[in-house]
Amino acid sequence: MIFSIMVSEGPYTHQASDSAYQFTKAALDAGHEIFRIFFYHDGVNNGTRMTTPPQDDRNIVDRWSELAKAHDLDMVVCVAAAQRRGIVDVDEAKRHGKDGDNIAEGFRISGLGQLIEAGVKSDRLMQFGD
């Protein structure tokens, strides 16, 4: 079965990103396909590589990046939501005259159409938020 995941909250403040991660891992373990993981609202904050949690805690961002690498996952950060919250890749930084980018490995910035497409092309679209 084909799943897509929508993450509507950022890391740490809410459990949403943790739950989405555990669900994604369990779905992959069960042999399902993950079409896309879409980050919206404050969920875009899961995609900044500037995150540096204490050593004894999980690194939510790195964990997503590693899972994406291991399973070739498509992780999309919504461009409009990202612009509001200061999540930028090299192209976005250049376009808006910013002095640096902060997108984490494995994430890409794209439009809301990617969320609708995930809804159309997946058997189930799971939403994790608050």
Binding site: H32, R124, G129
Partner: peptide, 20 residues
């Protein structure tokens, strides 16, 4: 249920609604 059971519930039902 564990997360595997969560995935099974999502797969066995035709649609999912997240009451956030």
């Amino acid at each position: 249920v564990d997360y595997g059971g969560f995935v099974e519930l999502a797969a066995s039902n035709d649609r999912v609604q997240s009451w956030l």
